[in-house]
Structures are given as structure tokens and as C-alpha cells.
């Protein structure tokens, strides 16, 4: 359907954000649907993973740290894993597997069924109508999911740490907040926002590059997941390096 490379495609989509208000009458519905599918319908799954990971960190870390008398480090570990490193990666991976594949499949099938041709024939730009709202929706959803993941992960950690030693909620959160630097939050948001942008751009691009056969759709999907995963790794490594560079300057 599109016969140009990923970079021009991305530039076109990003430039379309600037004029989103002009076509909001036809694009707003798609944006809201994307947020509902990616950000709201995935809440249960993300909550389960967050609770389990938060609990697992305490189950594994608490006995080890208490055996060497360094229990205070459990808060730093919780922040490092849930907020800064593991948490954002897991949330982005869940979204890539769940919503990235859905976008590629949906757009690929639309190409095969000539729905994209029909949009063009009606004068509706597929980028403005289909891609830009999905990209914006994906970024917004990832920020929403990540906030939820942090809340559930920390809550899971608190519940399990109570099994080892009874800690009042206020004490737990005061000690946790003392370890939390504002840069942790900025890096977390930057990681998920950039990942959301890349996942949705890669998924949309691969969906729209289906030519005409339905058999191309799973092939493009496999490519989209592979490239999305590589992009996720690069983004997360770069932002982690940036975090340590900034923290060492502080």
C-alpha cells in the first residue's frame, strides 16, 4: 500500500500530529478506541503481572538482604525494577505483543480488503485517519498502563513484605519515596512514551506495506514484532545509559 521507507513514513505521521485538530471529527473515535483497547482492556493483565513481579522481588530479595543486614536496600531495588528498568520493559513488551500485533493485522487486512483504497478514494488520508490516532493512543495508553503498573507493583511488594515483617503503610511509603528520585519518573515516562511511539509506528508501517495477499499479513506481523523488540531494547538501553550519565553528574 505504501511504497516508501520507514523514516519518511514516520516523519509523515509525526508531522500529521500537528494538524490532528483539523481531522479530529473522523480521527477522535479511532484515538479513543485505541486507548480503550491498549490502555484499558490490558489493565487486568498488567495488574496481574505487576502484583506478581512486586511480590517476587520482595520474596527473593527480602530474605537475602536481611541475611546480610541490608533490608533498607529493598526500597531501592523495588524502585529500580518496578519504576525504572524492568517495569517499563515488561509493560512495553506486553503492549508490543498484544496491541502491536493487533495493529499490524488490522491494517494488513484492511489493505487486502481494499478498505485503504476506499479511504483514499473518499479523500480520507489513511495516515490521518488510521495511523496518527493509533500512535497517539498507544503513547497515551502506555503512560496510563505504566502508572498502573507502578501502583500495582509497589502494592504487591508491600503486601508480601508484610508477610516477612509487619510494616505500617505510611512507613513503607515514606521509605520508598525517600529512595525515589524525580529522574526515575522522567526516565520511566520517556522510556514508555518513546517505546509507544516506535511500537505503533513499526506496527502500522508493516501493516500498510502488505501488498495484496492475505498470506502476507502473518509474515509482516512476525517482522513487526521482531523489529519492535529490537527497537524496545535499543530505547531502553539508551535511556538507562542516559539515566546513569545524568545521575553521575548530580
Amino acid at each position: 500500500m505504501i511504497n516508501y521507507g520507514f523514516l519518511p513514513f514516520s516523519a509523515y505521521v509525526v508531522s500529521d500530529f500537528l494538524v490532528f485538530h483539523r481531522h479530529r471529527s473522523i480521527s477522535l473515535e479511532i484515538l479513543l478506541r485505541q486507548i480503550r483497547f491498549t490502555g484499558v482492556e490490558a489493565l487486568g493483565l498488567v495488574m496481574l503481572i505487576a502484583l506478581l513481579i512486586g511480590a517476587l522481588i520482595i520474596v527473593q530479595g527480602y530474605p537475602l538482604l536481611s541475611s546480610i543486614g541490608q533490608v533498607k536496600w529493598i526500597y531501592a531495588i523495588l524502585i529500580s525494577t518496578i519504576v525504572r528498568d524492568l517495569g517499563p520493559f515488561i509493560v512495553c513488551f506486553v503492549v508490543l505483543a498484544r496491541s502491536g500485533t493487533a495493529i499490524t493485522t488490522e491494517l494488513g487486512n484492511m489493505v487486502v480488503r481494499k478498505e485503504i483504497d476506499a479511504l483514499i478514494a473518499m479523500g480520507v488520508s489513511p495516515i490521518s485517519y488510521l495511523v496518527a490516532p493509533r500512535v497517539l493512543g498507544m503513547v497515551a495508553s502506555l503512560i496510563l498502563l505504566m502508572s498502573y503498573f507502578v501502583a500495582c507493583g509497589i502494592f504487591g511488594g508491600y503486601l508480601v513484605s508484610n508477610a516477612f515483617a509487619s510494616i505500617p503503610v505510611s512507613t513503607f511509603f515514606v521509605k520508598l519515596m525517600a529512595q525515589l528520585h524525580w529522574l526515575d519518573m522522567v526516565i520511566m515516562l520517556a522510556k514508555v512514551a518513546f517505546s509507544g511511539l516506535m511500537i505503533s509506528l513499526i506496527a502500522s508501517y508493516h501493516g500498510l506495506t502488505v501488498k495484496s495477499a492475505i498470506t502476507e499479513v502473518p509474515q509482516r506481523n512476525i517482522k513487526a514484532v521482531g523489529r519492535g523488540l529490537i527497537a524496545l531494547c535499543i530505547i531502553h538501553v539508551l535511556f538507562t545509559l542516559l539515566y546513569f550519565a545524568l545521575m553521575s553528574d548530580w
Binding site: E106, R113, E115, D117, G123
Partner: peptide
């Protein structure tokens, strides 16, 4: 706007209702 196009396949947007499909060119 002035060219009506009818494809060999219906080419309606499949995840929209019929009403939403028909509103799409009008909204545009």
C-alpha cells in the same frame, strides 16, 4: 468529493457500523 467510487468488493471499513461508514465521507 465529486468522484463516487464503487469497488469490486464492498471495501466498507469493517470495524465500523454501516452508519459510521456512511458518515465518514460526510464528516470529511
Amino acid at each position: 468529493r465529486d468522484l463516487g467510487v464503487i469497488f469490486q468488493v464492498s471495501a466498507l471499513i469493517s470495524n465500523l457500523t454501516l452508519e459510521e461508514n456512511l458518515l465518514l465521507p460526510l464528516n470529511r
